[in-house]
């Protein structure tokens, strides 16, 4: 196989080489780097585990089978406040529901809310940021000033305000959390686009006759996608946290469905008498948020070519 290129290529040799040499994809390089980051791998394993739990619970629910040790929503006042033991690993809550089952059940909701909320803010944020960054001028000013106004209000307050307008409920919570973090994505995308836009290859794309929409979609976004992926990963963790916060305030999931923040909120009166009712949902939230943060940080290092050289 010929390894070196010269300006006068030997056609036969090169054709043989065609089947041997395959381009090394960017994703593969990213994966290789990520694999060496132990913390990120731990984060990834935890996330995979959480996703597995959520899917299992969800599928079994669809098929009408009970694979959790107890029905998470079945209350039996006679069994309230049982300390953690061999039959109820994490104990039972004030209504006698099995906390272990409720936490497993809650995984489903937390992950779903995280992903769905990020999907909303990502889509809207990327579109707004891309238009603002690429167009510039007045369009940019108008979009970004609105974003600034949203950023000026603490996100949880804004989410509560949206909830007040939309009403209670899981779907409303997802929309509220999604709307609240739009400005973050818009800003990040706009910033990256501004720096990529100045590159000659974007100008070259214009010279060969590309339309603006295609330039954004085909030439600019692929070059900022890695930044977006990192931000989205970290975004899931903050969405999980926001869901918990809304749940804690009683604005998210409505009873009797299990949601970690809601569990925390309802148990807060028993912090001294039955601390386990708070501790286990708290741990679940922490682990999930931590896992997404570890993965997000690892991804950020993996896409940064400077840290890749190491």
């Amino acid at each position: 196989m010929k390894t070196k290129d010269s300006s006068v290529p030997n056609e036969n040799l090169l054709q043989a080489a065609e089947y041997v040499e395959k381009p090394e994809s960017q994703l593969k390089v990213m994966w290789e780097t990520l694999r060496q980051n132990k913390a990120a791998v731990v984060g990834l394993i935890i996330i995979a585990f959480l996703v597995l739990i959520a899917l299992t619970v969800w599928l079994s629910e669809l098929m009408g089978k009970q694979i959790l040790p107890y029905d998470p929503n079945y209350s039996d006042m006679g069994k309230a406040f049982i300390h953690p033991n061999s039959t109820h690993w994490f104990g039972t809550d004030q209504l006698g529901r099995d906390i272990f089952s409720r936490i497993l059940d809650g995984t489903k909701i937390s992950l779903f809310v995280g992903v769905a909320a990020v999907a909303i803010s990502l889509t809207v944020g990327v579109i707004l940021g891309a238009i603002a960054g690429y167009r510039g001028g007045k369009t940019d000013t108008v979009i970004m000033r609105v974003m600034d106004m949203m950023l000026a209000i603490p996100s949880i307050l804004l989410a509560i305000a949206f909830m007040a307008a939309l009403g209670k409920g899981l779907d409303k919570a997802i929309i509220a959390i999604g709307l609240v973090s739009i400005p973050e994505y818009a800003r990040i995308v706009r910033g990256s686009i501004l720096s990529v836009k100045e590159n000659d290859f974007v100008q070259a794309a214009k010279v060969i006759g590309n339309k603006s929409s295609r330039i954004i979609y085909k030439h600019i976004l692929p070059n900022v996608i890695s930044v977006i992926v990192v931000r989205a990963t970290l975004g899931i963790s903050s969405a999980v946290l926001d869901t918990a916060a809304l749940g804690f305030l009683g604005l998210g999931v409505q009873p009797p469905f299990a949601e970690w923040g809601d569990m925390l909120g309802r148990a807060r009166g028993f912090i001294f008498t039955a601390p386990y009712t708070l501790i286990f949902p708290g741990i679940a939230i922490t682990i999930t948020v931590l896992a997404f943060n570890l993965l997000g940080d690892g991804l950020r290092d993996a896409i940064d070519p400077k840290s890749r050289i190491k």
Binding site: D200, Q203, A204, A205, N223
Partner: peptide, 29 residues
């Protein structure tokens, strides 16, 4: 009317293969 740019490092989209870069003007026109 076409252009050849000064900086060969900045003027090619790093996420596209050489073949796609050369094919693009033919395809979009």
């Amino acid at each position: 009317i076409q252009m050849i740019f000064q900086d060969p490092y900045a003027s090619l989209n790093p996420r596209m293969t050489i073949g796609d870069i050369i094919a693009e003007p033919i395809v979009i026109n």
